[in-house]
């Protein structure tokens, strides 16, 4: 491994309450979940943090269930947990579709939804699903619980409203009416970082979210409004193209991403 681990400290809480106290009294601490983002950064030597908090043993953050009518997904639920969960399959099939396309099985067995959300990459595959589902991020600190609408969670490129003394404990999703859609366009099926991801709900009004086409995951609000107002597919596609702000990078060009997004919109609208 590049870089020494000798100067690193790992705090090992026995319970969620313990973990929250450690964050308050002994911070700043970097939470560790499945480590599929963190250990890549550590192995590379790009992560300079030295004090960590082990969340992996906190079983209370793992269950998936229904709470007060809402689908509640524990932050430590892995992609494998999501794929196998009967309630997620029933209520949020677009999340199962997204989880199936993450990494290979090794990554699916370790990567968590909480890690995907907090890592805040604009290419995170579950993020468009959570955006289209109008999910709620449940944050907890020693001081209490905050519920933040997913669509207000990101404030800029890799920036979130999470305070350093807070843990994401769960994602909550209200029942959804309407056909769900998910599509990831990458270079190959497994292990590929997305070039464009789109999730949608064909309800009234429709909900459309995209990843990798702007500094954060976005809801295409103007496109949604146009479709709800009876605009033609071509008109909606023009509006979507204007609504995106993709970039050129090593994975793709802005122009390509815009074209793919517009094609995915057609797929979503036509129900294919």
């Amino acid at each position: 491994m590049i870089g020494s681990i000798a100067n690193r400290t790992l705090l090992q809480p026995k319970s969620l309450a313990d973990a929250l106290k450690m964050l308050r009294d002994e911070g700043p601490l970097t939470p560790l979940a499945g480590c599929t983002d963190l250990y890549v950064a550590l192995n590379f030597g790009t992560l300079k943090d030295v004090r960590f908090l082990n969340l992996w043993g906190l079983e209370r953050l793992r269950p998936i269930g229904i709470r007060a009518g809402m689908l509640a997904i524990g932050a430590l639920a892995t992609y494998t947990d999501l794929i196998r969960s009967p309630v997620v399959r029933k209520r949020l099939p677009m999340l199962v579709a997204a989880a199936r396309e993450v990494g290979g099985v090794q990554i699916q067995n370790r990567g968590t939804i909480g890690g995907n959300v907090v890592n805040a990459s604009p290419a995170g595959d579950t993020l468009p699903v959570l955006a289209a589902a109008d999910a709620v991020v449940v944050l907890q600190s020693a001081g209490g619980v905050r519920r933040i609408p997913f669509n207000a969670f990101y404030t800029g490129y890799r920036q979130t409203v999470r305070r350093s003394d807070e843990i994401v404990v769960a994602l909550e999703i209200a029942p959804i009416r309407g056909r769900q859609y998910f599509r990831k366009v990458g270079t190959r099926a497994a292990q590929a970082i997305s070039k464009v991801v789109m999730a949608g709900v064909a309800g009234t009004p429709p909900r459309i979210a995209l990843g990798s086409v702007a500094p954060t995951v976005i809801r295409a609000a103007q496109t949604e409004a146009a479709i709800a107002g009876g605009a033609s597919l071509e008109a909606a596609q023009r509006i979507l193209a204007d609504e995106l702000s993709p970039i050129d990078d090593m994975r793709s060009t802005a122009e390509y991403r815009r074209r793919v997004a517009v094609n995915l919109l057609a797929q979503f609208v036509l129900g294919r």
Partner: peptide, 19 residues
């Protein structure tokens, strides 16, 4: 670096031994 933890394959280069 794949091996099995509780019968599931994981990448051992991304697993802290504490886990």
């Amino acid at each position: 670096c794949t091996l099995l933890v509780d019968n599931r394959p994981v990448n051992s280069c991304l697993v802290p031994v504490a886990h």
